[in-house]
Amino acid sequence: MGFKLLSKLLVYLTASIMAIASPLAFSVDSSGEYPTVSEIPVGEVRLYQIADGVWSHIATQSFDGAVYPSNGLIVRDGDELLLIDTAWGAKNTAALLAEIEKQIGLPVTRAVSTHFHDDRVGGVDVLRAAGVATYASPSTRRLAEVEGNEIPTHSLEGLSSSGDAVRFGPVELFYPGAAHSTDNLIVYVPSASVLYGGCAIYELSRTSAGNVADADLAEWPTSIERIQQHYPEAQFVIPGHGLPGGLDLLKHTTNVVKAHTNRSVVE
C-alpha cells in the first residue's frame, strides 16, 4: 500500500471513529477524501466538511520552486461564519470567499490569524475590503508590521502568557507558548472536538522541520505538551499544512522538532 493511500485511509478511519463516538456532533463529509496538494491548482481553494458547521479550507501556493498546501478553518456561528487564517495570499483568499459563498452561503463576518507569517495573514486586506472584521493577538499584529505583512485590524486580548485561553464565538483560542513562531495560536472547536494546530503542528508525513527561522526550538516541545494537557479530548487535529489526523500529530511534531534540534547540535 502506497504512503499517500495509507495517509488518506488514516484520515478516513479517524473521521469514521469520530462519527461513531459522537453521532450528534459529527456529520463528516462523505463526498470524498481530504484534498491534497496535487489536486488543488494554485489560485483555487477546496472546502472539506469535518463536522456539522465545521470545515477546513485548503489552498496551495508556490514557494521556492515548489507547491505547498495550506489549511485553515471555518466555523459556523449562528447565521454567520468565523474564518481562521487566510488562504495564503490575496488571490487565494478572494477564491476562498467565493467558494464559501458557493458552498455554504453564509457571510464571513470575523477572521482570526493564528500567527504573523504570510500563509496566515496574506489576504487580510481582501477580507477587510469584503467587510470582514480581522483579528490577531497584539504580538501577531506587531510582528506582521515588522515583517511588512498585512496586519489584522483588531487585537485579541488575554493571550499574552503561555497557557492563556479565551473564548471567541464558537471557538476557544489558546496560546501554548512559542513553537513554530513566538505568537502562534491554537484554535479548538469544543462542539466538535476539532483542534486546529496551525503551523505549530505537523502532518504525519512530514519528517523535516522546514521553516524554523522564527521558531523557538527549545520551547516548542513544552508548548505541545500544554496543548495535549489542555485538549486531551480532541479527536480531529488539523495541521497548518497537509493531512489531518488525531492527537498523534502532536507527538510526531515533537519528535521531528527534537530530531532537528539534535542534528543542529551535532553539526
Score class of each variant (00 low, 15 high):
I100K: 00
W88K: 00
L97G: 01
Y202R: 11
P244C: 03
V265W: 09
T14N: 05
N184Q: 10
P41H: 14
V132M: 08
W220C: 03
D214R: 09
Q228T: 14
E267L: 13
L243G: 07
S137A: 13
A59V: 12
T14K: 12
A66W: 14
V124R: 03
Q49R: 13
P107E: 14
C199Y: 03
A129Y: 15
P170Q: 06
D164I: 10
W55F: 13
H230E: 10
S205K: 09
S27T: 10
L204C: 04
V266D: 07
E80G: 14
H252S: 08
E203Q: 15
R142K: 15
S7E: 13
A218H: 09
V194S: 02
E147I: 15
A90W: 13
D164M: 06
G105L: 15
H117N: 00
Y196R: 00
G177Q: 01
A136H: 04
V132Y: 00
V212I: 08
S38F: 15
H230W: 13
S16I: 15
P176F: 00
V212K: 11
S62F: 06
M18P: 05
R76S: 09
S113M: 15
G122D: 13
L243K: 09
L159C: 02
L96V: 14
V194Q: 00
V146I: 13
S30P: 07
H154K: 10
P107M: 13
T153H: 12
S70N: 06
T153N: 05
D79L: 15
L96I: 04
E147M: 07
N92V: 02
C199K: 00
D79H: 15
A21E: 08
L73D: 02
V126E: 06
D164E: 08
I74S: 03
G53V: 13
D77C: 05
N211L: 09
E150R: 04
A51K: 06
R226F: 13
T182P: 09
L185E: 01
G32K: 10
K251L: 07
V257Y: 00
G245V: 02
G245F: 00
G210Y: 03
L250E: 02
L106Q: 08
A192N: 08
A94Y: 11
Y188C: 02
S264N: 15
G2N: 08
E147D: 12
L127R: 02
G158I: 06
P244I: 05
S193L: 09
T134G: 02
G240P: 02
Y12G: 12
T134F: 02
H115V: 00
A200G: 05
A133F: 12
K251D: 05
V108W: 02
Y175R: 02
V54T: 11
R226E: 11
L217H: 06
D125F: 08
P138A: 14
T261A: 12
H57S: 14
Q49I: 05
S38H: 15
T86S: 14
L24C: 12
E219F: 15
Y196V: 04
V189W: 00
G169C: 04
W55Y: 07
A19P: 08
L9R: 07
G163D: 09
I151W: 09
G123D: 03
Q229P: 03
L127F: 05
P232T: 06
T153E: 12
Y188R: 00
L83D: 02
V67N: 11
L217Y: 09
A234T: 06
P152E: 02
G240V: 03
H115L: 01
F3W: 05
P41Q: 06
E172A: 05
G2P: 10
S31C: 14
L82F: 12
S30A: 10
L204W: 12
A130F: 14
P232G: 09
S191V: 07
D85F: 00
G210W: 03
S62T: 10
S155I: 06
T60N: 10
V146L: 11
H117Y: 01
A15L: 08
G122H: 08
P170F: 04
K8H: 14
T182H: 05
S137E: 04
A94I: 07
R263K: 14
K4P: 12
Y68D: 04
V54S: 04
E225N: 04
S27I: 10
L73S: 02
V112Y: 03
Q49M: 07
S113F: 10
V256W: 03
Y188F: 12
